[in-house]
C-alpha cells in the first residue's frame, strides 16, 4: 500500500478549477518529483494534501486513511510536514522559536531536543544564528529554517514546495544535498520544483502537471531522456 495516495483530486478557487482530477501515489522511502510550469497547480496540490485547502472532489489517503476531511492542524501529528512555497518562516520569532514551533504537536522533551540537535547538525548555520530573528536571515538561511522547522515534527513524509526558488546555484546545490540526506535518513519526500533538472536527478519517480492535469508520469531517469520533457522543462 502506498504511503500517500491521491485519487481523482479536484480543487476549485471559487468557480475556477485549479486541479482537474489528478491521481498519484508516493511509496514509503521514495523521492517523488512533481514538476510543471507556473500556474500548473503544484502548490494547490500540496496545500490540499496538508489541509490548507479543501478539495471539491477526490480522496487523499495517508497510511490508508482519508485525510481530506480532517482539520488541517491535525495532519502534522499524523506524520506529514510541509515546507511551504516562499518559506513562510515566522519573521518576528527567533530561529530557535521557529524550530520549537515545528515541534508544536510533540510532547516528549528529550525527543524534541534530539530532533533539534539533528537539525542543527544538518544546518550548522541555524545553530550559529539560533537567537537571531528569522526575518533577518538571508533567503537561503530562511529556506534552511523552513526545512529544519518541518523536520522538527519528525515527519514520515515531507512535502516541499520549490525549496530552490530564488537561491544562488551554490545554495541550490546545498539544498538538494540536504534533500538527499533527508531521504537517506528514511523520510519520504514529495518535491515540487520548477528546477526540473535537479528534481529529476534526485527523484525516484516523477509526475508532470499541466494546467491541473497529470500529463506524464514515470521513472525520473527515463523522464530526463524524454524528448518532450527535455524541450518543455529542461531547456535543452
Amino acid at each position: 500500500m502506498a504511503m500517500l495516495e491521491v485519487k481523482n483530486l479536484e480543487v476549485h478557487y471559487g468557480v475556477i478549477q485549479a486541479i482537474k482530477g489528478i491521481s498519484f501515489e508516493v511509496n514509503e522511502g521514495e523521492v517523488i518529483a512533481l514538476i510543471g510550469a507556473n500556474g500548473a497547480g503544484k502548490t494547490t496540490t500540496l496545500q490540499t494534501i496538508t489541509g490548507m485547502l479543501k478539495p471539491s472532489a477526490g480522496e487523499i489517503l495517508f497510511g490508508g486513511q482519508d485525510i481530506s476531511k480532517i482539520p488541517g492542524h491535525k495532519i502534522v501529528s499524523m506524520g506529514m510536514a510541509h515546507v511551504p512555497e516562499g518559506r513562510r518562516v515566522f519573521a518576528e520569532l527567533s530561529v530557535y522559536e521557529n524550530l520549537k514551533l515545528g515541534a508544536y504537536t510533540r510532547k516528549d522533551k528529550a525527543e524534541i531536543a534530539e530532533s533539534l540537535a539533528r537539525v542543527y547538525k544538518s544546518f550548522p548555520r541555524l545553530e550559529e544564528r539560533k537567537n537571531q530573528l528569522a526575518g533577518t536571515l538571508s533567503g537561503g538561511e530562511q529556506q534552511m529554517l523552513a526545512m529544519g522547522r518541518a523536520l522538527m515534527s519528525k515527519p514520515k513524509i515531507v512535502l516541499m514546495d520549490e525549496p530552490s526558488m530564488g537561491l544562488s546555484p551554490i545554495l541550490v546545490e546545498e539544498i538538494f544535498n540536504i534533500i538527499r540526506e533527508i531521504s537517506a535518513g528514511g523520510t519520504t519526500v514529495l518535491l515540487v520544483e520548477q528546477n526540473a533538472k535537479k528534481a529529476l536527478a534526485i527523484a525516484d519517480r516523477a509526475y508532470v502537471l499541466e494546467t491541473g492535469k497529470i500529463v506524464l508520469s514515470g521513472d525520473a531517469k527515463e523522464m530526463m531522456n524524454n524528448d518532450s520533457i527535455k524541450k518543455a522543462y529542461l531547456g535543452e
Binding site: 495532519i75 511551504p84 515566522f90 522559536e97 508544536y104
Partner: peptide, 19 residues
C-alpha cells in the same frame, strides 16, 4: 508562541499543527 505564530501567518501556524 502559537499566538505569535497565528498573528504572523495563520496558514504557516496551521502547518505547525496549531489550531
Amino acid at each position: 508562541q502559537a499566538m505569535l505564530a497565528v498573528s504572523e501567518d495563520k496558514d504557516a501556524a496551521q502547518l505547525m499543527g496549531v489550531n
